Simulated scan of single mutants.
Amino acid sequence: MRRTPYVTYALIAANVVVFLFTPGIAGSVAGQSDLAQLCHLQAFLDHYAAVPRELIHDQLPRLVPTGAVGVGPHGPGCVVATPEYQKSPPASVFTAMFLHGSWLHLLGNMLFLLIFGNNIEDRLGHVRFTLFYLVCGYAAAYGFALANSDSGDPLIGASGAIAGVLGAYLVLYPRVRVWVLVPFLIFLPLRLPAWIVLGFWFVLQAAYSSGQGVSSAGSVAYMAHVVGFLVGMVIAWPLRAGTPRPPEPQGLLFGRRARPGW
């Protein structure tokens, strides 16, 4: 790696800061969410998360949670009212890329970004990597929205953009070996070629997006992962011929070899 991955570090820092300052998230992280925190969080997500129905049909809700708690005929609940803000569905895709619902969601995404983002940023340069990340994130969100055009559930997370990074890594560095933990009675650390690790990851996402191997898609937007990954591959494809193998420094850091002193 020749360039310091400033954009990768900045993205990780921004995601962590946004997560820490997301209203209502502290209680949910500690497992002690009360109704007020949940209402506050729901209002925040309705404002800043991407919603498939809004992206495809530009249908903004007439009533949204205000963040306040009220008592209705069926007991306490979140108060809804006419929104006091103007929401831009395309802009919500950008803000949604920095929102996460749990520490596990956040740390998983940031770990993948740290492991694979540095070499892609090195290959593309800081500005082009930033644009690449955003394009993959937008493509993933709209791809998921097209497949779920009537859904009103909020879509959050950097997974789609990071899936694009993984797709580019598979194209540019397929033979680079990465450390992974393979469950076989116990978790065994194995150093495998990237094409095996990322190829297997993509196959799983594609299977899950079609409903195979899971009872339901649940809260994970597998289709966004698939679309982001494919878009990343397509963008990186023309760069294959001129891409040198990344250096192999000494030491280990997060599944790959790291420079001495890290």
Rank of each mutant, 00 (worst) to 15 (best):
P89F: 00
Y173F: 11
Y48W: 15
D153P: 03
M110V: 00
V171D: 01
R62S: 12
L155A: 11
L106M: 06
F116T: 04
V16Q: 09
A158F: 06
G117Y: 07
V135F: 10
R177S: 09
Q212S: 14
A168R: 08
G75T: 03
M223A: 06
A241D: 15
R257N: 13
V7E: 07
G117Q: 05
G67K: 09
M233D: 01
F132P: 02
S159T: 06
A141V: 11
V197W: 04
A140D: 00
A10E: 12
G31S: 08
L20Y: 12
E121W: 03
G232T: 11
C39V: 01
Y142E: 07
S209G: 05
V165I: 10
P23S: 00
G70F: 08
P65K: 04
V135M: 05
A68S: 14
V64S: 05
R259D: 14
G77E: 11
G199Y: 11
R62P: 06
A141I: 10
P246W: 04
V79H: 09
R191C: 13
G160W: 02
I56M: 02
A163N: 01
E84I: 12
L99R: 05
H100G: 01
V80E: 08
V226P: 02
V18P: 09
Y142G: 01
V165H: 09
F94R: 07
L99N: 03
Q86V: 15
R123T: 04
A194K: 05
T22G: 01
R123C: 03
L124A: 04
G167H: 06
V127P: 01
F19R: 06
Y9K: 14
F94P: 11
G242D: 13
V16K: 00
L170D: 03
I25A: 03
P5M: 12
P61M: 07
G255A: 10
R62E: 14
V180M: 10
Q86P: 09
W201P: 06
L11E: 09
Y208V: 11
A50F: 10
L190H: 05
P52M: 01
V18H: 09
L113A: 07
V29D: 04
V182P: 07
Y48V: 02
R245K: 15
T82G: 08
D150S: 12
R259T: 15
S88V: 12
G211K: 02
A30H: 11
Q59R: 12
I25G: 07
P90C: 07
